[in-house]
Write a protein that binds this DNA or RNA. Structure first.
Lengths: 203, 203
DNA sequence: TTTTATACTGAACGTTCGTTCAGGATTATA
DNA sequence: TATAATCCTGAACGAACGTTCAGTATAAAA
């Protein structure tokens, strides 16, 4: 009787809300403690609901994490598209790119937990697949950015693919290095790194 | 009755040998499966001895890992000092530095397991401390190298400390990025990265 | 109102894993 | 040879954790 997504159904509404609550609690815990160190019980406690209830809303712990990763990815993209238009040059875009990474990903989101999975070998899981996907997305993103800069005549690069990988490496490494840094120092470090990168590839 | 370290004591010899065997088996397992995914039982099986025996030779799982980290560190330093003399310029040293990292650390040693610990938050352990120590050692190493290059007039740097951190970030990121790469491709990527870095800081 | 689907609980299960310990075997010491 | 120290075994412990499930309450549907 209702239009899609606009049901007045009281039960469904409650359900959505608790699912949200679980997702947000899990997110906060994964951020602070990492994936492995966060137990389902922790999440249940934080939400005030039961372990079983979490398994009602999510298939498994991995499934919950995957759900959060997807959310995160989507939020990042939206934010980037909002920011991108304000940058005139590709050079500015690169600095803005670094800036958004620091502001969005440094302390808040799932970067630590994602990193944890990155160095995971146990049983192959859906997450492995998802991380490889993310990685390739990042490389593509970097390549496009560098190619734009070349086409614009802002800088040179004799090896776009390689330089995209180097940029990605820098970003990964920086996120690990700067975890214990204060935000302003992290920002400076990232900006400096982009500067080094930009001067470095144009030779 | 014996001079230190040269005892003919049959029992002590056996003990040293089994300790060695355990260390090497553990090392291989930590490398392949990571720290968390390697159980004491795995190590016991691989050595053909018992779980209890491992706890006779090592205080704990962490203690065993710490022991390996120290070994690794020491081996690296020895090898570096062997290599260092063959490089005339600091620039060459940097390329050689990258080369040794790839050849020694890419697939073989405990880099994966160390990385795993890097993104660990559970209970604070001795390993945390040791990793911070290692990190500071690396930064110092990088700083010295860059300073040497400046003093030699090979390149410039307006911010040695910052650039040392960026170099370290690059190395950390590269080791993660290139885990699934073939050795020759990894070598190329590292060399390119050093090139970018060198051109980048001199501006 | 009766029936059915949905949201949720909490105890229990099964497994894994690090660690301990009583005791046995082997070698050094007296 | 007798005693003591050292090396090693293997079973058992205990805690943690992801997952399941029988059952309950509540709201929707009939």
């Amino acid at each position: 009787m209702d239009v899609k997504g606009a049901s007045t159904n009281k039960k469904q509404l409650q359900s959505k809300q608790t699912k949200r609550k679980v997702a947000e609690a899990a997110r906060a815990l994964f951020v602070n403690k990492g994936y492995g160190a966060t137990s389902i019980e922790d999440i249940a406690e934080a939400t005030g609901s039961s372990k079983g209830n979490i398994y009602y809303h999510f298939k498994s712990k991995e499934g919950l994490f995957l759900y959060l990763i997807d959310e995160w990815d989507h939020e990042w993209e939206v934010k980037w598209q909002q920011n991108e238009s304000q940058y005139k040059t590709v050079t500015d875009k690169l600095y803005g790119f670094a800036r958004q990474i620091v502001l969005d990903d440094l302390h808040h989101p799932l970067s630590k937990a994602a990193n944890e999975f990155f160095n995971y070998n146990e049983k192959p899981s859906d997450i492995e697949e998802r991380i490889i996907e993310m990685m390739q997305g990042h490389l593509k993103f970097n390549q496009d950015l560098i190619q734009q800069g070349i086409d614009n005549g802002e800088f040179k690069s004799d090896n776009v693919e390689c330089h995209a990988a180097i940029l990605e490496s820098m970003v990964i490494g920086l996120s690990q290095m700067s975890r214990q840094l204060k935000l302003e120092n992290a920002l400076m470090l990232y900006q400096q790194a982009i500067k080094v990168f930009l001067y470095g590839i144009s030779n």
